[in-house]
């Protein structure tokens, strides 16, 4: 989604109404309940939220010019990887095998065999994830996420079908959004 993304893709950047700010805050809070205790740190109440509307109906939620969350149309909010690195517990994670890293970092979606690789399948089995959920993608033996996506199949299906796209990647390390830590 952010494969090519830069300041130029931003169509309109504006401060938004406080009512809308509240709505966005609420939506994100509802979506990531485990983030609750730290919510003040992630999105301080005093700071103003800016919304950047980008190519492809992407909305970037920014605080002090730093993209923090984003969504497409009215879809779920995803955190940027920098935020996820700070609060890795905020959303379910999935692990891919080492061989997949290269492809994920060039923007590929996560294929089922990468998730069911013998080195990582245990984690998949132990941490069931539903279909259509935002997840963070970790790599075998790594502690930080390398991509954010949402599942196309439940973890059970992934194990059973073991074919095709398991997780749709929306944001990955070193993509356009990663390279724009600050928008101006």
């Amino acid at each position: 989604m952010f494969k090519k993304f830069s300041n130029e893709e931003v169509k309109d950047k504006s401060k938004i109404k406080s009512s809308q700010q509240r709505a966005i805050r609420q939506a994100i809070q509802d979506q990531y309940p485990s983030l609750d205790p730290y919510f003040e740190n992630v999105m301080p109440k005093k700071s103003e939220i800016q919304l950047a509307k980008c190519e492809g109906k992407i909305n970037l939620v920014m605080i002090d010019g730093e993209p923090v969350f984003y969504n497409v149309r009215d879809g779920p909010y995803y955190p940027t990887l920098r935020v996820h690195h700070q609060y890795p517990f905020m959303m379910p994670t999935m692990r891919v095998d080492k061989g997949a890293i290269k492809f994920v970092l060039s923007g590929a979606n996560i294929m089922c065999p990468g998730l069911t690789h013998k080195n990582v399948v245990e984690e998949l089995a132990n941490k069931p994830v539903d279909n259509n959920t935002p997840v963070a993608i970790l790599a075998e033996g790594k502690e930080h996420a390398l991509a954010i996506g949402h599942t196309q199949m439940s973890s059970q299906d992934i194990i059973q079908v073991n074919k095709g796209i398991g997780v749709n990647v929306v944001h990955h390390l070193n993509d356009g959004l990663w390279k724009t830590p600050k928008l101006d």
Partner: peptide
């Protein structure tokens, strides 16, 4: 709990967490 937000170290050369440097 108070370890959050994690201070994640990013490589000064390639901007990603050092564990992914190899792929950059």
């Amino acid at each position: 709990d108070s370890r959050y937000p994690l201070k994640v170290l990013y490589c000064g050369a390639c901007s990603c967490p050092p564990e992914y440097c190899a792929w950059m």
